[in-house]
Design a protein around this nucleic acid. Structure first.
Lengths: 193, 193
DNA sequence: GTCTATAAGCGGATAGAC
DNA sequence: GTCTATCCGCTTATAGAC
């Protein structure tokens, strides 16, 4: 059937971790479950990564890169300033459609609340995510609300975070659409008059 | 100095649990830390509550009742329809000022993501919180946007959840003010025109 | 009788040895 | 890859203080 390693163990571990940790809970998921899914042994995991935390951090870094690309694409294919700003919601929809990265709500925020890292590589990914959102939303807000771009960006970020949290809460039923509508209201408030 | 129990052990345990669990993390906090802070013994905790989960659930129920009262007060003291709808943000500010219930972001949402309860008394508190928010926001939206009250309420809920999540993310700096502004934008979008 | 202090059982999870 | 050591967290048991 398959020789030694069609897919290297390191990759299998990362995929398994990504799949389980952010869907079932980081602390709730024992290493054994990741090992079983990856069909790998503890030795392999610990020689490649050193710890469950380090594996988690690497999985988060991959997510971050993929999420950024997904957002890139949606911004590029948007065709006016408002759509470019709201593209973050389309990116979220596309990212969640993609069954490669399932998650209950948001891997980065889940790591923040479950692990509460004050420093270290996990904290770094969270900060990178926040920094990306902040700078990019401000940048995309500028054409719409020059001097109030900061405020508009903050509004869109809150709408985005509210959308993610809605998945956790289970309400409203269509979080992304609701979030997009809310962000659009912010655009209107900061552009007209 | 102090006789037997100035404050009963059961109360001390609940206060300690409330103080630590939602500030430092539910799963991250060992029972021993609650016991130390409450200056209680394991036997006392387990005779009163039966488990860490049951203690957590009771602490959440108390939070829920206090949060609801806080919101009640702010709605009552508001003096027009818009202020009544946005009172949820004033309630949040007041609740967080009150040092009695410290929390990193939101006790209910933290329980949701850390414990992922599919059923049971913890799930019930989370659902009660969501139901309270949903029904009350719809009710308060009706005077402002009769037929679109549902949509407006959804927007305010997302702004509220975004505000809570902003505490977790550490951005923006003043989440409550930003959330209030965003909710106001939703009000404007659903009332004018 | 209620509570505290101490300690031990027990399962589970991480980590490392072979 | 199997197996094992170690640790940690929840829970229960014991003994004693007020």
């Amino acid at each position: 059937m398959s020789t030694a390693q069609q897919v290297p163990a390191r990759t299998r571990l990362l995929q398994a971790a990504d799949h389980i940790l952010f869907e079932d809970g980081i602390r709730a998921t024992p290493v054994d479950e990741i090992l079983r899914r990856a069909r790998a042994s503890p030795a392999t995991l610990y020689s490649h990564f050193g710890s469950k935390d380090a594996l988690t951090a690497e999985a988060l870094r991959i997510r971050f890169a993929d999420w950024r690309s997904s957002w890139d694409e949606q911004v590029i294919s948007a065709n006016n300033d408002t759509e470019r700003l709201l593209a973050v919601f389309d990116a979220l929809a596309a990212y969640r459609e993609d069954r490669q990265h399932p998650s209950r709500w948001c891997a980065f925020l889940a790591a923040a609340t479950e692990l509460m890292p004050e420093a270290g590589e996990i904290r770094d990914v969270l900060d990178a995510d926040t920094a990306l959102l902040r700078t990019r939303l401000v940048h995309l807000s500028r054409p719409l609300a020059a001097d109030r771009a900061q405020d508009l960006a903050e509004g869109v970020l809150l709408a985005y975070d509210g959308t993610l949290t809605a998945f956790l809460r289970g309400h409203p039923r269509s979080p992304i659409e609701a979030g997009r509508r809310l962000a659009l209201a912010a655009v209107q408030a900061y552009t007209q008059s």
